[in-house]
């Protein structure tokens, strides 16, 4: 049992310390594809380090919500990490604390705090970004629901550790349309939720066009560092759910020895790299959508998710 708790802690550490690297690699790849040199892949670590050593400035208009939000945002992905398979294909100590829906709630809590903090800061751009995030969020919500619904329908369970095994036993299940379509829909959701092109431009610096970034404009110092770190962790966690739960549990440790689990770390990181390359390809080949075309994008994601259920229903 102690070993399980240890593994859980390793898992959390992996998410905390590798996620800025994944974001750094993503940014560098994107610049390279665009023909530029790009920042170092360790730039995100440097940013976070630098911000921790700066003073924090708080608006006198803001309340405790503004101050508490970085911690809530930071804690949410860590909690979710304990629920999902990051390194092992068998459930760890905290795995039964909550299922996929629970994990979704915890992530949504972080998002909720970020939103009201943006309003709390009394910065006009904050409120605008918050309302846009909510728009994307409430369009994404039905897609999330249908994806979970499909997963439950196929796997008869919402515990991620059980779901992931369904897709590969027997191996031909991997090509089940419900599986592939759910994966496609969830990938579209990741793009929308983490503010990637075509929904949002993460590298844009024009406040009026921002969706996700404008919420944390008012943060400085350690608050900004935590928000940045939390953002990269959320990205990493979503990728882990996508890769390990919805695609396939390949590369996860199935043995309980410490060596197995440590070996899984580079394997997982390679998988994440693959997903990062995919995202770079998508981001580089598409243009950002107009705000009101986002409905069409998420509508398409919704249709893909429902098509997953339908093909499942029709063919059994």
């Amino acid at each position: 049992m102690v070993r399980m708790i240890l593994f859980n802690l390793i898992q959390v550490a992996v998410v905390m310390f590798l996620s800025p690297l994944a974001v750094g690699i993503l940014n560098r790849f994107k610049e390279r594809v665009a023909g530029k040199k790009g920042p170092s892949i360790f730039q995100t670590y440097r940013d976070i380090w630098k911000l921790f050593h700066k003073d924090q400035i708080l608006s006198s208009e803001s309340t405790w919500i503004f101050r508490a939000t970085p911690y809530v945002c930071f804690a949410a992905p860590i909690l979710v990490t304990m629920l999902i398979p990051v390194l092992t294909s068998y459930p760890l100590f905290f795995a039964f604390m909550g299922d996929m829906i629970g994990g979704g709630f915890v992530l949504a809590l972080g998002g909720f705090f970020a939103t009201i903090a943006a309003v709390d800061s009394a910065n006009p751009y904050g409120a605008m970004g918050a309302s846009r995030t909510r728009m994307v969020g409430f369009l994404a919500e039905p897609v999330f629901m249908v994806v979970f619904f499909t997963v439950c329908f196929v796997a008869n369970s919402t515990i991620p550790y059980i779901v992931q095994q369904k897709w590969v036993h027997p191996e031909s299940n991997f090509f089940n349309p419900a599986h592939i379509l759910v994966a496609v829909a969830f990938f579209m959701l990741i793009l929308a939720e983490t503010g990637k092109i075509p929904v949002d431009n993460p590298s844009g610096h024009f406040e009026l066009a921002m969706i996700d970034e404008s919420k944390s404009l008012e943060y400085s110092g350690s608050g900004a560092a935590l928000m940045k770190w939390a953002g990269s962790m959320k990205f990493f966690v979503l990728l882990c759910i996508f890769l390990n739960v919805l695609i396939a549990p390949w590369g996860l440790a199935s043995g309980t020895a410490l060596g197995d689990v440590l070996l899984a770390i580079p394997l997982i990181f390679i998988k994440v790299l693959g997903a990062v390359i995919l995202i770079v390809m998508v981001e580089s080949s598409l243009a950002k959508l107009r705000l009101f075309r986002i409905t069409a994008f998420l509508g398409l994601a919704f249709v893909v998710a429902v098509a997953a259920v339908l093909t499942r229903m029709m063919t059994t």
Binding site: E171, N173, F175, G299, V303, A307, A308, T311, T315
Partner: peptide
């Protein structure tokens, strides 16, 4: 039987994507 199962899953998968293309024809701008 194993190979048959694979073929069936692939047929289903192609069917799923075929349906998506029908949606795509509506959504293409």
């Amino acid at each position: 039987p194993d190979k048959v199962a694979w073929i069936h899953e692939l047929i289903l998968l192609v069917a799923g994507f075929f349906l998506l293309c029908s949606f795509g024809l509506i959504a293409a701008s």
